[in-house]
Design a protein around this nucleic acid. Structure first.
Lengths: 144, 144
DNA sequence: CCGGCATACGGTACTATTGGGGAACGAACG
DNA sequence: CGTTCGTTCCCCAATAGTACCGTATGCCGG
């Protein structure tokens, strides 16, 4: 599955090329279909469609008439955007997402198990890095 | 299914062009037949006819005597209007709905699983947007 | 140092959206 | 009954956004 991080660039048309290691997984296991969404206003998450549909299933089980749920769904689905890899293995980032994630020329593409994250390079660097203690706490709570 | 949001415009004749991604689904899976109604949140909902019939089934199972239910049904059915895509892939919004949703030139077309919503651009923007934390809370309660 | 792979870039073709003109239809009116 | 007006649809053209292609550039291993 997806592991590791890569520094790539956004071209003048707003496209980011997917690292070739990830590309293989996406085309072989997932038929090349992807869904992009916002994650907490700071980075863009990229799910293979199949994985995203699992998220949708859970959302569908919520009470649809409830106001908070309707608002939640509007927010989540309005930022979602389907796309496929182009023949050069790139994806087009919708301007809306590009802007909200503050993407400049240089971005990080990070693989996290079943999804990818796309960060502005600067935001990624200045991301509050967890202290060794915090990481140790999580690891030990997992019994590692 | 339907996901993502697109900024489109209402032309001088009150038509809105349906995003091509949605158009494909509507013509391929649903024979192009649609039902438009008012939603209570100042937007217009667009159901494929087949999905709308499912909504009607649910409404029929509500307690018909209750005042709120009767009011609800009056609002929903009186504004409901069937339509199809024209040859350019647009839908004509009845003036009644256009006015009640406060549509100006610029609108958002949002895909939410099995239906679309059409919002005035300004109303959409000023809709109380949930913070990332709130969304995160809902997501984590879903185990995502 | 060279060959192979992967990413970056720029030009061109294509598709989608938008807008306006005119025909067809129906309702209202004289 | 015929005319007029308004509405809706179809068609064509202009624009802008997206996808594809070929090529340049940089990195790594041999």
């Amino acid at each position: 599955m997806f592991r590791g991080s890569f520094e790539h660039s956004v071209d003048s048309k707003g496209r980011v090329s997917v690292p070739s290691r990830f590309r293989e997984i996406i085309t072989d296991r997932y038929e090349g279909k992807l869904v992009l969404t916002m994650d907490f206003d700071r980075c863009i998450t990229v799910y293979p469609l199949e994985e995203w549909e699992r998220v949708e299933e859970k959302i569908k089980s919520l009470p649809q008439m409830q106001k908070e749920v309707k608002d939640f769904m509007r927010t989540v689905f309005s930022t979602a955007s389907e796309c496929e890899l182009d023949k050069q293995g790139r994806i087009l980032i919708p301007p809306q997402l590009r802007e909200r994630a503050g993407l400049n020329k240089s971005v990080m593409v990070v693989g996290i198990i079943h999804k990818l994250e796309i960060w502005d390079r600067h935001a990624w660097d200045s991301r509050s890095t967890q202290s060794g203690d915090e990481i140790g706490a999580v690891l030990s709570s997992l019994g590692l």
